[in-house]
Design a protein around this nucleic acid. Structure first.
Length: 475
RNA sequence: GGGGUUGUGGGGUAACUUGGUUAGCCUACCAGGAUGGGGUCCUGGUGAUCCCGGUUCAAAUCCGAGCAGCCCCA
């Protein structure tokens, strides 16, 4: 890989730009298997930060972590009819051990409902066993046939999947929205990516769910993308898998279930939204090394500059600063490299600074240079990092909100979508109407707002409008 | 599903039309030296024709099949 700068322009050729920045920022590498990529430390550490945020939220909410096997026997996988139909085309199967053919094929999990619920059925007997709420951090494989895009569409990806069983529908409904809010917070507060929260249409919901909630956002190329989902499974799986319990009034009932997931796709979304022509931009809240200290080394004063740089690094320990004291690269080289890699804040210290007891802060988000007295560094760094986090979010929010337009009919939607925007419409919600909209505009429904009341008739057919729905071209 | 197009060191490319050079260049990497506030310079070095088969005295180049990527259409 050419180690020099990004030479694609984000606005002009998004795909080329995206491919370049993720490689030049040293986030991933390709493997021999199409769609299966290598998370290098740069991207894996981002994932670890996302994990630690969400994991904390889940545990505080009472969810416990567990781990279920990778391989799912075919008979289990097939138990819930709609589910198997939805996933079958992209399931990879293990058929042999060495040269011996297995008696039963084993699915490599595309998601773990089926294998987990087989066990849940054994573990749940009484209302006292509920709620049962387990989460696992793992990898899954979905054998996509569209061409892979790193992070955004890969055959293997990392995620967490939470699977809950409740005694009542009400509790399940409440959890579904509570989890969705965790996901929205993770996007907005950690990744600085604004999202649209809502409910998926019948066509777009998870295979086997009663309904699916999602967060959605828009990429700079005009493609909408689903950020994470929280599904209410009703009693569909509990009936298929026999998850039954005796309730407090001594009646038998099936459990009410949810499943919810957040994947490494989020990393791609964040990069696509914040990056610029110099490289990626990492929001301070998601990156381990929030600061890089670059001493400007001349032959004279070298020792003293390095000493001061070291003392700054020591003082900023809680921001995990990097110290770039490599002697065989020029200062300009280093500036470009750290910008490519998206470190939010660079602190430069050279002889001129030393003379005036100051350093230079350079913000990655807007390139602003700020002189800061050495004694003030400790209190200025968190302040500037907060500003960067906020600025990235507001910029992205402005873009998202500016891309959404109300549409009154199909031709207006077509125009908005061709213009790389998202259309917002009063909609009836029927699957056949959605098919028709997709045929005529290329747009699918993203989700429908929770609290908006639809007015009048459906924008696309003459039925009564039931939802206020976002439509867009999607990934 | 149909059509087009491309595979050359780690990355980007030239040579292919008209078969014959020591497979050229940029970058990266390694060694040494000089530099040093926005991708610094000099010297030397490492490293490549996707796989299989065919044509030919001779194949990166032509032909066939395969594999892989990209684009367009359904």
């Amino acid at each position: 890989m050419d180690n020099k700068g990004v030479n694609a322009v984000k606005k002009e050729n998004f795909s080329e730009w995206y491919t370049q920045v993720i490689q030049k920022a040293d986030l991933i590498d390709y493997s021999e298997v199409s769609g299966c990529l290598i998370f290098k430390p740069g991207s894996y550490s981002i994932w670890e930060n996302i994990q630690s945020y969400l994991d904390g939220k889940f545990k505080k909410d009472g969810v416990k972590n567990a781990y279920f096997p990778l391989l799912i026997p075919e008979h289990l996988f097939k138990k819930e009819a709609e589910h198997v139909q939805g996933f079958a085309p992209e399931v990879a199967w293990v058929t042999h051990a060495g040269n011996t053919k297995l008696n039963e094929r084993l699915a490599i999990r595309p998601t773990s409902e089926t294998i987990m619920y087989d066990s849940y059925a054994k573990w749940i007997r009484s209302w006292k066993d509920l709620p049962l709420r387990y989460n696992q951090w793992c990898n899954v494989i979905r054998w996509e046939f569209k061409h892979p895009v790193p992070f955004l569409r890969t055959r293997e990806f990392l995620w967490q999947e939470g699977h809950s069983v409740f005694a009542t529908k009400k509790e399940a409904d409440k959890e579904a929205i509570r989890i969705l809010n965790f996901y929205a917070d993770c996007y907005e507060k950690i990744l600085a990516v604004p999202v649209l929260k809502g409910i998926k249409s019948k066509n777009e919901k998870f295979a086997g769910a009663d309904y699916s909630l999602s967060v959605e956002t828009l990429l700079p190329n005009g493609k909408a993308i689903q950020g994470a989902t929280s599904h209410n499974l009703g009693q569909n799986f509990s009936k298929a898998f026999g998850i039954k319990f005796l309730d407090i009034s001594e009646k038998n009932d099936y459990g009410w279930q949810n499943s919810w997931g957040f994947s490494t796709r989020s990393i791609g979304i964040m990069i696509a939204i914040h990056g610029d022509d110099k490289g990626i931009i990492l929001p301070p809240n998601v990156v381990l090394n929030k600061v890089v200290v670059v001493p400007i080394l001349f032959t004279k004063d070298k020792k003293e500059i390095v000493n001061v740089a070291n003392s700054i690094v020591k003082k900023l320990k809680k921001f995990n600063p990097l110290l770039d004291d490599r002697d065989d690269y020029s200062a300009g080289w280093k500036f470009n490299e750290w910008e490519m890699k998206g470190i939010p804040l660079r602190i430069e210290i050279g002889p001129k600074d030393l003379a005036s007891k100051q350093v230079v802060f350079v913000r990655r988000d807007n390139n602003e240079k700020i002189n800061v007295k050495i004694k003030d560094i400790g209190k200025e760094v968190p302040k500037v990092l907060n500003e960067i986090q906020e600025n990235l979010f507001l910029k992205a929010k402005k873009f998202l909100e500016g891309s959404i337009q109300k549409v009154q009919d199909i031709s207006e939607l077509k125009k908005v979508v061709n213009d790389n925007g998202i259309g917002k419409a009063n909609w009836c919600g029927s699957p056949s109407c959605e098919e028709n909209v997709k045929d005529k505009t290329g747009a699918k429904s993203l989700n429908s707002e929770f609290n908006s009341k639809a007015e009048g008739k459906c924008f696309a057919c003459n039925a009564k409008a039931e939802y206020v729905t976002y439509f867009g071209k999607s990934y």
